[in-house]
């Protein structure tokens, strides 16, 4: 093998670039760490809002730009990658549950003092909504596999509606519990309750963002099968985690 291969031969060659990862990363920095610190550590709400206002468009714009670059390509590997990501996500929930189980099983009495009656009907309805949204997402996927675009769009929109209904019901219920004095600082149960349900709710919202990020280009006629499968896999995961959440923090 020759040792005299030209070292600088890449000069003039084209290197792939994308501005969106950088925009999103620093958008996240403004949106979460900086705005949280400004508001809760330094009590400067106006600066915090400014930071949010800087971060949010960077993340949303970045995600839009990213999606528009990625939608036409890809090697169909996003689904297995999502599997690995779900492993990490599951571990986050595992740590919340481990914390909860440890506190609950070592508690002197449960529920701790100051806990009102936890509603039983609303979570049941929410469960029905979220579980059925998994089926509608699957129906959309099947529609796409059969090449039926309108079936796909119809079920995909129904999935979004079910997800939104779930989030709204969750909000109504939080409001109800908080008005009974069950605020997140009340006791270890309220602390755990709001962090687990809140964290799950955040995942539902993230899943909805993913679904919308597929829907918008789909309405404009661009559908990437791999993305649909990936988003729907994540949605199923959010759904399955809910079964743990509802059984552990509501019905146990």
């Amino acid at each position: 093998m020759s040792d005299h291969v030209a070292v600088h031969e890449h000069h003039g060659a084209h290197w792939d670039t994308s501005v969106w990862p950088l925009v999103i990363a620093f958008g996240i920095l403004f949106f979460l760490p900086l705005s949280f610190t400004l508001n809760f550590v330094y009590h400067k709400p106006m600066l915090a809002i400014l930071s949010l206002g800087l971060g949010a468009p960077m993340i949303i714009g970045g995600a839009a730009g990213w999606t528009s670059q990625a939608i036409g390509g890809g090697e169909g590997l996003s689904r297995p990658a999502m599997g690995w990501f779900i492993l990490a996500e599951a571990m986050i929930f595992m740590s919340f549950f481990a914390n909860y189980w440890f506190n609950r099983l070592t508690a002197v009495s449960w529920p701790p003092e100051g806990t009102p009656a936890i509603p039983q009907l609303m979570p049941a309805i929410m469960t029905v909504f979220l579980v059925s949204s998994s089926f509608t997402a699957h129906a959309a996927e099947v529609g796409l596999e059969h090449g039926n675009r309108s079936t796909f769009l119809r079920w995909w929109v129904v999935t979004i509606l079910l997800g939104l209904a779930f989030v709204s019901m969750s909000g109504i219920e939080w409001h109800h519990l908080m008005s009974e004095g069950f605020t997140y600082g009340r006791n270890i149960y309220s602390t755990t309750f709001y962090s687990i349900t809140g964290f799950h709710g955040a995942h539902v919202l993230l899943g909805l963002c993913g679904i919308v990020a597929v829907l918008i280009p789909a309405l404009m006629g661009k559908i990437n099968d791999g993305f649909v499968k990936t988003v729907s896999l994540y949605w199923h995961f959010v759904d399955i985690i809910w079964l743990f959440v509802v059984s552990q923090v509501y019905y146990w």
Partner: peptide, 25 residues
Amino acid sequence: QLIFVPVLGTAVTLITFDKYLGTHF
């Protein structure tokens, strides 16, 4: 990393919740 980093992330998030948001983990 995939298995264990999320656990650390949760742990350090909870101390910030406790310090700044008034939770009681």
